[in-house]
Design a protein around this nucleic acid. Structure first.
Lengths: 129, 129
DNA sequence: CCTTTACATTCAAAAACATGAATACATTAT
DNA sequence: ATAATGTATTCATGTTTTTGAATGTAAAGG
């Protein structure tokens, strides 16, 4: 009868880390590939991958492979709830394309913006990044 | 511009520990004294006091001294929200009097039950324990 | 004053975590 | 097959956390 906390502790521990919390926050906007996180965090690939491993093992994130890219996303609602409680409600504009990011989604997003320079690419562009 | 996560991390770290999470969960019911927590957790006083120190330093709990007893309570709403997200909504029947607990509130509660053995002391007794 | 009660702090050894560097793996392109 | 790209894992090391044991302190009672 120890406690059903036991399930929760690894999850909270995974959360209680700046880089990982940031990753999860980004993931609230939808799935993104590793290199996107690399750019967003300004950390090396190996570092990001290690933190993702922690999140995976704690059951917070899931993986989808697509060609060369590996996409991560949040697994369940409990995590989303915790993040909402900790960080406030998500803006939910979908993942933001990033300036220096080499990933397909960001590259695509930039190409689209260039094609119609009249639209400043700000709100709700549904860029599916 | 590092992140306003920085405030949050110590808080989450404090949360991510079985004994401390249990303490906070109990505290959701209202303030209790240290010896009550000692009984509830089945841990030695020094251990409980150490965990309380962590919670204090992370700004999750506050202290009130009353005679020999020291009473702890939750500080703010953010903590309550996090607990609600993690553990579900509180039953909020106020602190439960505990079987072997020597603290004033529990002792008082037992005395009251003995005085009126017709009432099984179950729901909503407002025992202020 | 001395004791008891209730709690806090310090200390030290063990365990867990964080993180950089190097390396391995898998997929796509040539 | 070879190379390049994107990601994962392993390893070694330094730092932090955890937790028991011992000790300190402050208030109340005798």
């Amino acid at each position: 009868m120890a406690s059903q906390y036991d399930d929760l502790i690894p999850r909270l521990k995974a959360l209680a880390h700046p880089a990982r919390l940031r990753i999860l926050d980004i993931l609230r906007g939808g799935e993104v590939c590793v290199c996107h996180l690399e750019t967003a965090l300004g950390r090396r690939q190996a570092y990001v991958s290690q933190q993702l491993m922690v999140l995976r093992e704690a059951g917070l994130v899931e993986v989808r492979k697509d060609g060369q890219q590996v996409y991560y996303r949040l697994v369940d609602d409990l995590t989303a709830s915790l993040l909402a409680a900790a960080l406030g409600p998500t803006g939910n504009t979908g993942p933001e394309p990033l300036a220096g990011c080499p990933c397909p989604c960001c590259t695509l997003a930039r190409a689209e913006v260039l094609a119609r320079p009249d639209r400043p690419a700000h709100q709700g562009d549904r860029t599916t990044c």
